[in-house]
Design a protein around this nucleic acid. Structure first.
Length: 301
DNA sequence: AACGTTTTCAACCGCTTATTA
DNA sequence: GTAATAAGCGGTTGAAAACGT
């Protein structure tokens, strides 16, 4: 079924399009319609492949293309769609009028993916990450949340404030759980002591805190976006992280294979809590440089 | 100002799927 | 049913811009 290389494509121009080429393509399509992309370059007098013409038109020259930054609503939608569809960029583009699959793909890879990673959420599984890298990112988020009043005072974007608050609160929850896992592993015999509560108790607290809003996570952020065809889904479409509502207590799951590289440089310290070497390498004392882990515990309490 | 590094995104490549003869 | 062709899709690349030192 492999298509043989087309001899007509030998010697054709590649690389960035010139304004002149754009003009020729636009005028030709306006005059004759899209028709056959293979025939188009020849008919229009362009030294380009049909593929290249199609891509240029669909991703850049179409009159209904919406350019500029993605707004909060679009970001929420992309994240939610990705949690359901995975890397089905063209399907996602169908839900975002004026946006192309290429644009969404680029935006995901350059912005949203990083955002989720910084929040400690695996961009593939859309579940909280457990690697050590998360620890520092969570600390940053907790720090950001404590400074949010300063850094965002001048902002009139209420959504931005809420998103950051939600992210920071989720980070706090994850950080607390990770710390509890650390303590539970470090002191297994004290599992049920009042000083070191067990993980299941932590989860209960998460549940209660999230359900009742006592942990500060806005209810909006925990609701399911109504964009996807799920008429049974309760709640409204608010909050960038609404798609995580199916997992109200951020259960700790392994990081996806795709992001394994990110954590190769760190020990997999939550995977095997019997490995004393790993725990010893997790030098919590070093975290005192900017914000001690004890301080974090105070912050999230 | 100069240089190196990182980020962004348009464009390409190779593969799969759909259509047609 | 099969093969050839066209269209579409997602991953990857690389040039340019932005940023940091």
């Amino acid at each position: 079924m492999r298509r043989p290389p087309c001899c007509e494509e030998i010697g054709i121009k590649k690389g960035p399009w010139t304004p002149e080429e754009d003009k020729i393509l636009i005028e030709h399509i306006q005059k004759h319609g899209q028709g056959s992309w293979i025939q188009l370059p020849k008919l229009a007098g362009l030294n380009r492949s049909g593929k290249s013409c199609r891509l240029r038109w669909i991703n850049y020259l179409r009159p209904d293309i919406k350019r500029g930054r993605f707004d909060d609503e679009e970001q929420r939608l992309i994240i939610h769609l990705h949690s359901i569809l995975g890397n089905k960029w063209s399907t996602m583009a169908a839900h975002l009028p004026g946006r192309t699959d290429n644009e969404i793909k680029n935006y995901w890879n350059t912005h949203l993916k990083k955002k989720l990673l910084q929040m400690g959420i695996d961009p593939v599984t859309h579940q909280p990450r457990t690697d050590l890298n998360l620890f520092s990112s969570l600390r940053n988020l907790v720090l950001a949340s404590t400074n949010s009043n300063d850094s965002l005072t001048c902002s009139t974007d209420i959504n931005a404030l809420r998103l950051q608050a939600d992210a920071a609160n989720l980070a706090k929850l994850q950080l607390l759980q990770i710390l509890m896992q650390f303590l539970a592993c470090r002191y297994p015999t004290m599992e049920s002591s009042s000083a070191l509560i067990g993980t299941h108790q932590v989860n209960d607290q998460f549940d209660q805190g999230l359900v009742h809003g006592s942990m500060g996570v806005s209810q909006d952020a925990l609701s399911v976006p109504a964009v996807i065809s799920n008429p049974d889904s309760p709640g409204s479409n608010n909050g960038l992280f609404g798609n995580y509502s199916a997992n109200p207590a951020p259960s700790v799951v392994p990081v996806s294979p795709e992001n394994q590289k990110d954590i190769q440089d760190h020990m997999n310290w939550t995977e095997d809590c019997n490995s004393s070497r790993d725990w010893d390498e997790l030098n919590l004392e070093n975290l005192d440089n900017e914000l001690g882990w004890k301080d974090i515990l105070e912050l999230i309490s």
